[in-house]
C-alpha cells in the first residue's frame, strides 16, 4: 500500500470528514511506527494517510478531576516524561515506556498502540485495569467504548469507516489504589511481549483488597479482562493463597498460541506468574499512597 496522498486536518471535524469522504483506502497516522512499515507491504492498494498530529487535543494530556484525559497521539516519550501522570498510573506509564527503542518512543503513542490492536500491545492491559474509556468521533457523532472492547481481533479494532479515536479517558483512582504492568520477553529491551499482565488493586486502611482489576496480554487474540483473577484478590490481604488463586485464574483464562516466541504451555504458566508479581507490586504501591 504505497502512500499516494498525505492530508493534514486542523481539527477533528475535518479529520472525520476526510476519513468519511474517500474512495481510496485511508488510514490515520500518529507516530507512524506501525503504519509506515505496513504501508510498504506487498498489497498494492494505494493509501491515503491522514496525519492528525496538528490537532492539539490529539497531542496533549491533562489531569481532570484527578483522572486523565489523554490525547491518543501524544508520543510515549512525552507521556513517560510526565511525573504527574506517572504518580497516578505508574503501571500505565511503565507499559508505555516498554514499547520499542528510545527512537520509537519519540513517535509511538498509546492511541496508536490501541488502534493497531496487536494481541501483545503493552498499554492495552494497563488501560483496561485502569477502567480507560475510548472516545470515538465519527460521522454519526460521538461514542465511548471501554478499553477491553476496543480491540476485537488480531490487528482489528471496533471502529467503523470514518471514525477516529479522539480521547482516552481514565477515571480518577479511588484512595489507596495503584497499578502495575509486567511482561515477559527473552531479552532485556526492544522486544514484543510473550505474555503480559496488568493489575490494579484498592486497599482499605488495614490492607484488605476491596477492589481489583486484572488484564492479561499476548495470550489471546486480544488483551483479556479477567474478573475471576480479580475476584480471587478481593476480600483478601493478598496472602499467598489469594495470589496463587489469581495466578491460576489468569492461567485458566488465557488462550495462547504456540509460535516462535513461546509455546502454549509456557505462556499459560508465565501469565500466571506475571499476574501474581504485578499484584504484589500494585499492592505495595497502593500501600504507599
Amino acid at each position: 500500500m504505497p502512500v499516494v496522498e498525505y492530508k493534514v486536518p486542523e481539527n477533528i471535524d475535518a479529520a472525520v470528514s476526510m476519513l468519511s469522504n474517500t474512495k481510496l483506502s485511508t488510514k490515520v497516522m500518529a507516530g507512524g511506527t506501525d503504519l509506515i512499515i505496513q504501508s510498504r507491504a506487498q498489497s498494492s492498494d494505494p493509501l491515503v494517510v491522514i496525519d492528525i498530529k496538528r490537532i492539539d487535543s490529539m497531542m496533549t494530556a491533562a489531569i481532570v478531576d484527578g483522572g486523565l484525559h489523554l490525547g491518543p497521539s501524544m508520543s510515549c516519550a512525552q507521556l513517560t516524561a510526565r511525573s504527574d501522570i506517572k504518580a497516578i498510573y505508574p503501571g500505565l506509564v511503565e507499559a508505555a515506556y516498554l514499547i520499542g527503542s528510545t527512537q520509537v518512543q519519540g513517535r509511538c503513542s498509546v492511541g496508536g498502540n490501541l488502534c493497531n490492536a496487536s494481541p501483545a500491545a503493552d498499554t492495552i492491559p494497563a488501560l483496561i485495569v485502569n477502567g480507560a474509556e475510548c472516545v470515538i468521533h465519527g460521522p454519526k457523532g460521538e461514542r465511548t467504548v471501554a478499553a477491553e472492547d476496543f480491540a476485537v481481533g488480531v490487528g482489528r479494532n471496533c471502529m467503523e469507516q470514518g471514525e477516529l479515536l479522539t480521547r482516552i479517558q481514565i477515571p480518577a483512582p479511588a484512595a489507596k489504589t495503584s497499578d502495575a504492568y509486567l511482561r515477559f520477553i527473552p531479552r532485556t529491551e526492544m522486544d514484543i511481549a510473550v505474555a503480559g499482565a496488568a493489575v490494579s488493586v484498592t486497599l482499605d486502611a488495614d490492607g484488605t483488597c476491596t477492589a481489583a482489576r486484572v488484564s492479561i496480554g499476548a495470550v489471546a487474540t486480544t488483551a483479556l479482562l479477567v474478573t475471576e483473577a480479580a475476584d480471587a484478590l478481593i476480600g483478601t490481604k493478598l496472602e499467598d493463597a489469594a495470589l496463587n488463586a489469581a495466578a491460576a485464574a489468569a492461567t485458566a483464562a488465557s488462550k495462547p498460541i504456540t509460535d516462535r516466541r513461546g509455546t502454549i504451555e509456557f505462556r499459560r504458566h508465565v501469565v500466571g506468574v506475571l499476574t501474581r508479581r504485578a499484584a504484589v507490586i500494585a499492592a505495595q504501591r497502593a500501600k504507599e499512597k
Binding site: Y6, M29, G31, I36, D51, K53, A77, S101, Q103, G106
Partner: peptide, 16 residues
C-alpha cells in the same frame, strides 16, 4: 531529531 524528539528517520515521512 525532529522537534527535539529522537526518532528513526526511516519511520518519518518526508512531508512530515
Amino acid at each position: 531529531t525532529v522537534n527535539d524528539a529522537l526518532v528513526c528517520s526511516c519511520l518519518v515521512l518526508g512531508v512530515e
